[in-house]
């Protein structure tokens, strides 16, 4: 029972995907070695921490909120891992659950503040950002190297695909999170509640949506996934540093918006966010292949893309409103 109108809900997803393919093809035609499975695999593994964090951000934004604390939580997670694994030599399999629960609780308490004190998510998570970043710096101003056999095992874990593509632990975690997030968004009650809150919090409440539980869960998920992003980031850097991932929350938000999620809430797809990150990654890859361009060009292109996407979203929603009004 597909209807032409129902399709329009996916329009922004199609546009995002088409843009990714286009950018990739441009690079592949221009540079030798760009159009390889290795480049694609690296897109995933290099950006895994960002994808994981941005997926959490997707739920927050769909519900009509925002979470500015994610970059700081990544840094704090890294520093805690550095101290407990790198310095005290605790086993990572004990430390990881601790930081994941910590991240979840951190998010949950921000969600509770937002709901029970009727505060703006922007200001609560801004406070959370300062808190987490400050805490990380207090614990250690220096970058802490993480040297543990488990990290070496993780680094070696994975499989080699034809074309020299390496699918490592980070990529596998990314896909596990993605599948989990899709199930959560579209095949669980909580997922429906999250979209409902973004549509209209007042109506959702009257329809019997447990608003408190949902809000707290949303920020807990975001906190948990940021902590997971922090762990994956430490796989990548083999260290924990309090100034890591500065401004990363804005990259995550940009990826979510480029992925077609409405900043006003109520509509969006997790898969879109993945493609949003990949678009940002492919631009970065293009610039490094080119070699002459300053890496800040990535930001410039992403800035332009954001303008285009917000404009496009506005046009799309306007068209839908007009259709609804006959």
């Amino acid at each position: 029972m597909m209807h032409s109108l129902a399709n329009s809900r996916f329009t922004s997803l199609y546009v995002t995907s088409a843009l990714f393919v286009l950018l990739f093809l441009v690079g592949a035609f221009q540079f030798e070695g760009f159009g390889s499975t290795r480049v694609v695999a690296n897109l995933f593994s290099d950006n895994a921490f960002l994808v994981i964090t941005a997926i959490g951000m997707t739920f927050v934004i769909i519900s009509g909120g925002i979470d500015l604390s994610v970059g700081a939580v990544i840094a704090l997670t890294g520093v805690v891992c550095g101290l407990l694994i790198g310095e005290i030599q605790m086993h990572p399999l004990i430390v990881f659950p601790l930081v994941l629960i910590g991240g979840g609780l951190f998010g949950a308490s921000m969600g509770a503040l937002i709901h029970f004190y009727k505060l703006q998510p922007f200001i609560v998570t801004l406070a959370g950002m300062f808190l987490a970043r400050g805490l990380a710096t207090t614990l250690s101003e220096e970058s802490i190297p993480i040297d543990h056999p488990f990290y070496d095992t993780v680094a070696d874990f994975g499989m080699l695909l034809p074309g020299g593509a390496w699918v490592g632990a980070s990529t596998l975690i990314l896909f596990a999170v993605l599948i989990g997030a899709i199930l959560l968004a579209h095949f669980s009650r909580l997922g429906g509640f999250i979209y409902a809150l973004g549509g209209s919090a007042q109506s959702a409440q009257l329809m019997g949506v447990p608003v408190a539980r949902t809000t707290i869960s949303i920020y807990a998920i975001s906190g948990f996934l940021s902590a997971l992003g922090g762990i994956v980031y430490s796989f990548y850097t083999f260290s924990g540093y309090s100034l890591a991932a500065v401004g990363m929350e804005l990259d995550a938000i940009a990826a979510v918006v480029i992925g077609g999620t409405l900043l006003t809430g109520g509509s969006g797809y997790v898969v879109g966010t993945l493609i949003g990150v990949l678009i940002m990654g492919v631009i970065q890859t293009y610039i490094s292949f080119d070699g002459t361009l300053n890496s800040w060009w990535t930001k410039i292109v992403i800035g332009l893309l954001l303008f285009v996407f917000i404009g496009m979203q506005r046009l799309l929603t306007r068209r839908q409103v007009r259709v609804a009004g006959h």
């Binding site: 429906g192 979209y195 549509g199 959702a204 329809m207 949506v209 109520g266 509509s267």
Partner: peptide
């Protein structure tokens, strides 16, 4: 909820 489908609205929760 205007952003959800008719079916979702009927069975939310």
């Amino acid at each position: 909820l205007p952003n959800l489908t008719v079916a979702q609205n009927l069975y939310l929760g």
